[in-house]
């Protein structure tokens, strides 16, 4: 399926994806990355959009209960929380592995001078 067709299916199946007349719009590059990750996992049959919409709805409710302003600006925060929850629930990557990798990226960033691409090394995973 082409990207456009896949994105169209996603926006039809999942309510409230920020969009204009031509399709989804993003507030920052990481939001587009998070969108692309979900699109590809869906393509591979990891979840259905119905499943996704219900988990995302649940994440949004949880965030609102915790004081999320619900202005639409935090939409992809919930999207990302949904991704993390679904990949854990499906046994693709658990929370501990994701946290360890996140910390490794943080170490890689800290040691990488600006102007050089950030790359992960094995020793970034050591504490």
């Amino acid at each position: 399926m082409s990207t456009d067709a896949a994105a169209l299916r996603a926006t039809q199946s999942v309510l409230n994806i920020p969009r204009n007349a031509e399709g989804p719009v993003f507030g920052a590059p990481w939001e587009a990355e998070a969108f692309a990750l979900a699109l590809q996992l869906h393509d591979r049959g990891v979840f259905t959009w119905t499943e996704w919409a219900s988990t995302l709805g649940d994440e949004i409710k949880k965030a609102q209960a915790a004081g999320d302003p619900d202005t639409g600006e935090t939409y992809y925060h919930h999207w990302l929380a949904t991704l993390e929850r679904i990949v854990a629930a499906k046994g693709l990557a658990d929370a501990a592995v994701l946290m360890r990798t996140r910390e490794a990226w943080q170490r890689a960033c800290a040691r990488t001078p600006h102007g050089t691409p950030i790359e992960l090394r094995a020793d970034d995973f050591e504490n």
Partner: peptide, 26 residues
């Protein structure tokens, strides 16, 4: 010269992408 910075959101997205790519899911 003092290293680079990624936001918490960027780090979380990168972590997901790294792990999922390593396992061949994406």
């Amino acid at each position: 010269e003092n290293g680079s910075e990624l936001s918490e959101m960027q780090l979380r997205v990168r972590a997901l992408e790294t792990v999922l790519a390593e396992k061949g899911y994406i």
